[in-house]
Design a protein around this nucleic acid. Sequence first.
RNA 1: GUGAGUGUAGCUCAGUGGGCGAGAGCGCUGGACUGUGGCUCCAGAGGUCGGGGGUUCGAAGCCCCUCACUCACCCCA
Length: 423
Amino acid sequence: MVVKAVRGFSDILPEEILTWRKVEEEARRVLEAFGFREIRIPVLERTELFARSIGGETDIVQKEMYSFLDRGGDSVTLRPEATASIARAYIEHRLYSRDPEVRLYFIGPMFRYERPQKGRLRQFHQINAEVFGVAHPMVDAEVMALLVLLLSRCGLTEHELQINSLGCPRCREGFRETLKAFLEERTRKLCQDCLRRKERNPLRVFDCKVKGCQEVMEEAPLLEDHLCDECKDHFLQVRSYLEELKVPYSVNPRMVRGLDYYTKTAFEVVAKGLGAQKAVAAGGRYDNLIAELGGPEVPGIGFAIGVERLLLVIPSLPPPPPPLLFIATLGDEAERIAFRWCYELKASGITAAMDHRRRSLKSQLRRADKLEIPYVAIIGEEEISSGKVILRDMRQGSQQNIPLDTFVQEIRERLGPSVHEAL
RNA sequence: GUGAGUGUAGCUCAGUGGGCGAGAGCGCUGGACUGUGGCUCCAGAGGUCGGGGGUUCGAAGCCCCUCACUCACCCCA
């Protein structure tokens, strides 16, 4: 094999497809029941969109984007996430003028130039859901509740919803400075990465894994205690509405965000068995994003589910079923007849198969057995002259004769639509 | 971008004080059963031992470089 798939880009093989479909179908079912409508956004956007929404200083924008100049000289980027694009579409098509509340979802691949590891690829898939136009904390709780519901429907059992409040630009800026000052006094105890974080995004020091840093952060001031009245009240209400819906959650005061646009509520669903990349879904409120992108003052909230990560922790479905009937042939004429029968059966929705390699009857049966095909028809010169075809039940090992000239009709009646829907 | 660990048949893996024409199980093909699957037995096909260079009489095993995969860091779904 000379040419292989590009690093971090993977094929999804037929045996995995049913599990993928189940997740996507559950997502559509649940989201549509909650009033979300599907939107499809382009793979490519102007680089500027992501620089402005995600934040020009974030790692995603700095070093993880697939960006290039197109032939017209414009800088474009394969989307590293969907929220920015959905927000762009919302503004561009003035969807806010149709109804004050707009709910959208999207399923598709994202691209980030990162080093692959468990639960992390360069092309990966997300299920995104966004609500535009409502600032009320009820919506925060509803979105989290439906996320948990959706994940459980997909078969995710061991998971935990963690929530936090990131505050608004006003209170967060103040806290940033407070925290930075706190860190300045303990620089000797911080790791190299955290010294860098201290400058770029001091909140990130909270989720450093180095012991020394964690010890320092035990005593660090918490954002919780520095929220403005509005943010504090919002967070309390979100919690009370989650309780109203009986959604279990825990507050994680150290949870922070890598994207700049988040405000107030942030949440994650973490699962066991995922290694270091243990968040299967994450989201939050972004009340200033639409305005920052040039739209009206409209609040928003949403989440993204990492589909590959979810697939790692839910049971997989069995592969697609084999054909229903295999036609084994002996001789040229039999092969020709079987060829026609297979076509006619498949055209009416019955999956049939045959072998075109002129193998012995034994090897044809062996193949049918290996493929777990439940019925095998046998046709050779004897059957052609007697006008009777053998139909063998592979599970029971029994067989009977059926008339050659009404074969297709006979098979349709016996094995037809109860198993496979007609085309 | 950083670090560690792995690359031997289609798959899962044995094989290092350097000496093998390179093995096993499963899978594949054929036969025993010349037109009847599964079980059993027999036979066969299939390998640039990731790639390149070096050391050596001799390298799958040692040295250097390189590529790929995996996990972790960074970051994140």
